[in-house]
Simulated scan of single mutants.
Amino acid sequence: MIQVAVCGPAECSAAEEASAREVGALLARSGVVLLCGGYGGVMAAAAEGAAGAGGLVIGILSGADRSEASPHLTACVATGMDQARNSILVGSADAVIAIGGSWGTLSEVAIAMRRGIRPVVSLSGWQINDALGNAVPGVVPADSPAAAVRRALAGQGTWRADDLR
């Protein structure tokens, strides 16, 4: 089963929240397991979208207490590891979709790149350039939730573009 991590800030704009909700629903309709940080903002919106579409949603929590987790999670892992949980979240994914940007989101993008997880899709978020200003290969921009999901799932097992319904 394909697992996609949806990463983004706990405090986000209404547009980022709407995009995350749509990404979550599209992933669920494609039969993908959604992984997220399990709290508010982008994480909660993606979880809500996926749960509303009947998907499986796993939250990898930074804290040791599950009581503050999004109510839209199917299950959660309370790591008690603070930001170190980002490594577990991203390392458990076949692909990553980053929506919006925060320092935590940037760390998740960097961890995914270091671990060779591809693709890493950026929707309204971080665009990574090298010292010469050239785009870093591997971070793929997307201009819509549907494009983000298509790019994240391209080449993932038996998934086909027409699975996105």
Rank of each mutant, 00 (worst) to 15 (best):
V109K: 00
G100I: 03
P141R: 12
S124C: 12
A78K: 07
G63E: 14
A75M: 14
S62T: 14
S107D: 05
G80D: 10
G52C: 13
V77R: 07
S124P: 03
M81A: 15
T74R: 08
I97M: 01
S92M: 11
N86Q: 05
G101A: 10
L106S: 05
A51C: 14
A131L: 14
I97F: 03
A110N: 05
P145Q: 06
L73G: 03
L89G: 04
A53P: 13
G100H: 02
P137Y: 06
D82V: 14
S107R: 07
V120G: 05
M43E: 09
A75I: 12
G63V: 09
D130L: 09
T105D: 03
G104E: 01
M81Y: 07
D94Q: 08
D130I: 11
G91D: 03
P119E: 02
I88S: 02
A110P: 04
G133H: 00
E108V: 03
S62G: 15
D65T: 10
P119I: 03
I128S: 00
V90F: 00
E108A: 01
A131S: 12
G59Y: 06
Q127H: 12
I128H: 04
P71S: 14
G125L: 06
L73Y: 03
A84Y: 08
T74I: 07
V96N: 02
I88W: 00
A131V: 09
E108R: 02
M81S: 13
A75N: 10
N129Q: 15
A135D: 09
I88E: 02
C76H: 06
A131H: 09
A51D: 09
G41C: 11
Q127K: 12
D65R: 15
A131T: 06
A44R: 11
I99L: 04
D130P: 05
P145I: 08
E108G: 04
A69G: 13
V109W: 01
H72L: 11
I128W: 13
A64W: 14
L61G: 04
S144V: 09
S70K: 07
N86A: 04
D94C: 11
S92T: 10
A44K: 10
A46D: 08
I58R: 05
R85F: 02
G80L: 08
A93C: 06
S70R: 04
V121Q: 03
A131Q: 09
L89T: 01
L61F: 11
T79I: 07
M43F: 10
D143S: 15
L123F: 03
A64T: 13
I58P: 00
I99W: 01
M43W: 06
